[in-house]
Amino acid sequence: MTWAGGGWPIPKGKGYFKLSEYFIRSNGYFAPSGDVIDIATAGIYITSLYGEYGITDRFGVIAYVPFFSRATLNEQVDRNGNVLAQGDAVNSFGDTDISFKYGLITNKPIVVSATLTFGLPLGNDQGGETGVLQTGDGEFNTMIALEASRGINGGKGWINTLVGYNNRINNFSDEFRWGLEIGHKFGKKWSGGIKFYSVNSLNNGSDFETPSNGIFSNNIEYLSFTPEVNYFIKENLGISASIGGALSAKRVLASPGYSLGVFMTL
């Protein structure tokens, strides 16, 4: 999710960088109906770098680089130890986002920026010996997003909002996305917030034609809720942790995802 700065474009020469580990492991899956069904336990582990850097006071570049992604699938055995299905795993580079953010309204109580994101299919969409594990969806996508933000409580808190349109190719459905984040600083060392993020399929693709072999690809939908806490070791260095789960969803794993990271600012 590339909206760490919200509607505020990062100033010229300034930057925000974060090394994160995200992981989710689940034996539940939100079926296309929205009901949770049992599946073989699947795991996704992503080690990523996120960076945001200001080229000018209004224009910045953002990169999300999952340089090590691992997907696992448990083997299935019956009570007698007979193997019903083999386990599997794949390690690879993951799908990468490159974004360009421009400040449309700055120096106002409510600031607005626009972000153009290119989703590069650098991951593996048919990984492992089974060919069913994914560290990417195999399609190039382009997303345009508008973010509006406002400081609250004398700048100690913030509200970020986002709306976006994700254009996908190869018969994948396009997506409408929205997000809401409310955060606040607590003393000099702590800050925290809660995020809501929603992905909604426009269902204008084709389930019968997508080239991808995965169940994590087309017509994904979810509304997630993610509390996050940050601890500042010093002014420009800190650690963050979050737990995110879907309040409702289709075609995603049905367990919370955990994220731990170290961030620094320029």
């Binding site: 090394l19 994160s20 696992t72 055995v77 386990g87 390690n91 650690i239 731990l260």
Partner: peptide, 28 residues
Amino acid sequence: ENVMIKHGLLGLMLLSISSCIGTDVVDV
């Protein structure tokens, strides 16, 4: 703090690399 961050980063990397394939026992 330096040591803590280095160990933390190392731990994050190891978590990815070492996460293994488990076994699910399925009731027929």
